[in-house]
Amino acid sequence: MQSAAAPSHHKSGTGKGHLLEKVMKLLFLIAACFSIIAVLLICFFLFANGIPAMGEIGLFKFLSGVNWRPGNNIYGILPMILGSIYVTAGALVIGVPIGLLTAVFLARFCPKGIYRIVKPAVSLMAGIPSVVYGFFGMCVVVPMIRPLAEKFQGDSYSMLTASILLGLMILPTIVEVTESSLRAVPESYYEASLALGATHERSVYCAVFPAAKSGIMAGIVLGVGRAIGETMAVIMIAGNQPRVPDSIFDGVRTLTANIVIEMGYASGLHRQALIATGVVLFVFILILNVCFSLLKHRSEKQS
């Protein structure tokens, strides 16, 4: 009786079954809108709390001031902006070549047995907490840099240390995105190049690699986002002096570090200035996100 009735419910659109369908669809829709609400809330709270401080300090003064002296009510975050950019650039110098080559190895050079070890290792790297990386940097990388830093009369808690560690931390991001975009390149590219007499290496690097360009760029942009947003590891090893660094052996403070270090005891305009620091970081990240999705769409179109 009931089994015969069910399809007719479905068709005629009356009764309890249909109501349930509608209610569930609505519930799923509400769940789906949750991420939109979350992004709107994050934007609202950050901007509402940060922008007044920018107005009070003066947007230009805030962004281009080289002095950060909360005690004297001087708030310039240029050292932190530069610190973030320098450290990220350093991380790219180290992370991008190693990451790209590792991805090529995984996609084109790796025997199956080794792949089963290297691939999980890379995804494990992405899962290791940043405090553990920071602690590793503090206890292993810093002492390694120390003799070199002393030679150049700099600090071992420096831009160089932070760059090395961040380069390591963005590896999994770059490797994973690059590998999947290399795998998306049609096999015929590689085969045609081999048939023309090129070696395996030449075919991979001159035919397959350029074809995956957009995807690889997307991976690098994602890596930039990771590096610029990294907080705990950087605090533990970068020295955190709020001044514009002169050499790679100078300590730096990044935007992220600025927030965590002083938020605990800040109040009034100082606190608002820290939130405004967060707003600047947030805007950086939003720009990077837009770049990332543009590149991703382009690479999807190509393949």
Binding site: I36, V39, I42, G229, L281, I285
Partner: peptide
């Protein structure tokens, strides 16, 4: 928005 959320660094979440 989901893509945006996954790109936001944890310190921004903390601040929010």
């Amino acid at each position: 928005t989901t893509e945006t959320l996954s790109g936001i660094p944890s310190i921004i979440y903390g601040l929010f």
